[in-house]
Write a protein that binds this DNA or RNA. Structure first.
Length: 146
DNA sequence: GCCAACGTTGGC
DNA sequence: GCCAACGTTGGC
């Protein structure tokens, strides 16, 4: 799950312990969120950062529920097409598992064996939520704990 | 249903 | 700040 540091960081999550992940307004990303199960672990990725990369691990502490802001008129996440019966967009809640000792930069991801197929290393991979295989997850976690 | 125009993302 | 790579919108 990606986020720009200006919006939210792993340190913010460390302070807050848990946070709700709202405002995703892309159908593909939403579908990934909808599939997330309680306890699923996610790589927390800082985008548009210096450097960009994975800064830690979080877990799903609440599975998908309707994103309340989609119904909130005037809110920046408001969507006029969303209704109570069909909220369209969902949120999940995250809990911090660990902040990495060091950031696993995008450059490192690109240069690490076994991560050749990892979505985030591909060109034009803008999606804010992307699938990660268990194997990729373990490789990245190991790098971050060094 | 096509596609041009437009907006956004995010690496660089 | 540039711009490639998208996703979305809306006229037709």
């Amino acid at each position: 799950m990606k986020c720009e540091p200006a919006a939210y960081t792993i340190d913010d999550l460390k302070r807050d312990k848990t946070t709700s992940w709202e405002g995703v307004r892309n159908y593909q990303a939403r579908n990934f969120m909808r599939d997330m199960q309680l306890g699923d672990e996610v790589l927390f990725y800082a985008s548009n950062a210096d450097p960009s990369g994975v800064t830690g691990i979080a877990e799903i502490s609440r599975a998908a529920y309707p994103d309340p802001f989609a119904l909130k008129k005037g809110h920046k996440y408001f969507d006029e097409k969303a209704t109570k019966d069909d909220p369209i967009w969902v949120s999940v809640e995250l809990r911090l598992v660990e902040k990495f000792d060091e950031i696993v930069s995008l450059e490192t991801l690109k240069n690490t064996k076994g991560l050749e197929e990892m979505v985030v290393t591909k060109k034009g991979s803008r999606l804010s939520i992307q699938p990660v295989t268990a194997r990729e997850f373990e490789i990245v976690a190991k790098l971050g704990r060094r």
